[in-house]
Design a protein around this nucleic acid. Structure first.
Lengths: 254, 254
DNA sequence: CCTCGTTATTTCGCATTGTGAAACGACATT
DNA sequence: AATGTCGTTTCACAATGCGAAATAACGAGG
């Protein structure tokens, strides 16, 4: 609608995507704008704290973005919805529990409950998750509208992260089918070697998929059987979160 | 510079500030814009994923903001700068270590190292910190330019969080003076009851204050003496982080 | 069921504002 | 010193964003 705003947002996205080394020309090209327009927009972003100009002509995304996100997480408090369910889930497993929400064509963590284990997973709240190779991601992907699924499972989107990542659209279609049938989803070292997860989808008040809960652990301590045996409690936790978000009941039969 | 972009950013900020219940009229008033302009901007934000329109006429900040912040944390990886120092610091204390960076008129966590203790602090990466009542915050505040300090320590900014929060500008001025002299800073239940922290500032390559490191723990297990005795190693960790960020040497004598 | 008041949305004419070509300047490279 | 590249500034034009006012949608009260 408002052209210059659209352009500015696009510039901001490019800035983040190319961080931490974005130079004006590249930004302009990536955003499909003329240098002068890009320059003006970037200046505005800098002035407002959404970008910073580093020496050497590099531009970086500004901390204001982090600041907004921080406030937002606090204010919206997505995690309150999942918190109770996560704590309950923690009674059933000593492993790390994550809550992630969908955001554009990826998901990201909004809450995490550390496992009662000596090791720690290298994850932080805010970290983004690919939809095609993570437990939360695939759980979400499986419940997206068919059109979006098609987009997101195009061959060039299925980037391999490990040897086990599903990169074939057909296999992915089968996988998503199974996820819908089972109600949960396994990530068997598809995102990171040595990490196995089980995930289940969470729905919002429109009945649309909103995010997912997952339990993750090193493969050595967390066999496929261990993971699968958690499915019932995980699904229960996910459903209780959906309920807290006001999701309509008994999805899957309608 | 670019009016409509400035306005859009302002609208986005208002949206976050008023989350999760912002109605068009309020947004317009808070942003100082006419309803029609606000409407157009909000529509643009919605279309781009920076806002969502909820039923009942409520607008909420969109998950795209979180998504950008998530990518940004990953891409910029502020935490790499502090990681080594934090791990080193962890050798000297079993308590929780935080790294926070300045962002506008607050700070927020970008990394956290869980303490080797049975309890956990309710903090997550991304969480925002007030500058006037947290260890990292005050460490930063003390090293801001005098003008900013004046702004940020105006009586109405010094909001009490606990009985011990410093709300008197004069006392705050003295406190900041001491922080500059000592090189570290104590938060003695000023932000949360039962939590005591020690913090030290981190500087960037311009020599400007960039963030801070802190060690936090429940007061019962972490006396004032315990905290103060950590000062040397904490300061060393902060200085090593500053060095990693390319900060000029021997600050404080010039 | 109608009326009035409030608030969101749309329309529309105007000129402010954003735009991009082109000029300029700062650097680096040869 | 000459040439090329890239960031920055200028400027004339009109497209774009603007806000007043009209309209629609909704709710509360009678």
């Amino acid at each position: 609608m408002t052209q210059s705003v659209q352009r500015a947002l696009r510039v901001m996205e490019v800035l983040v995507a190319k961080a931490p080394r974005a130079v004006l020309g590249d930004i302009a090209k990536a955003a499909g704008l003329t240098p002068s327009t890009t320059y003006r927009i970037v200046q505005t972003l800098v002035q407002e704290g959404y970008a910073t100009a580093e020496e050497g002509g590099y531009y970086q995304p500004g901390s204001r973005i982090l600041s907004l996100a921080g406030q937002m997480v606090t204010a919206m408090d997505y995690s309150t919805y999942a918190r109770a369910a996560m704590l309950e889930l923690q009674e059933h497993t000593p492993e790390t529990i994550h809550f992630g929400v969908l955001s554009g064509d990826q998901a990201h963590y909004v809450d995490k409950l550390e496992g009662r284990r000596p090791y720690r997973l290298a994850s932080v709240v805010g970290m983004s998750l690919k939809l095609h190779c993570t437990a939360i991601g695939k759980a979400i992907l499986a419940h997206l509208p068919p059109g979006r699924i098609a987009e997101l499972t195009a061959p060039d989107r299925l980037v391999a992260h490990t040897r086990k990542t599903i990169t074939d659209p057909e296999r992915m279609a089968t996988e998503l089918e199974r996820i819908r049938a089972q109600g949960f989803c396994i990530d068997d070292e598809e995102d990171r070697d040595g990490v196995r997860c089980i995930g289940a989808p969470v729905f919002d008040h429109h009945g649309q998929v909103f995010g997912g809960l997952s339990v993750s652990a090193p493969t050595m301590q967390f066999t496929l059987q261990d993971a699968i045996s958690l499915a019932p409690v995980l699904i229960a936790a996910a459903e209780s979160t959906s309920a807290a978000l006001g999701a309509p009941r008994n999805r899957g039969n309608d």
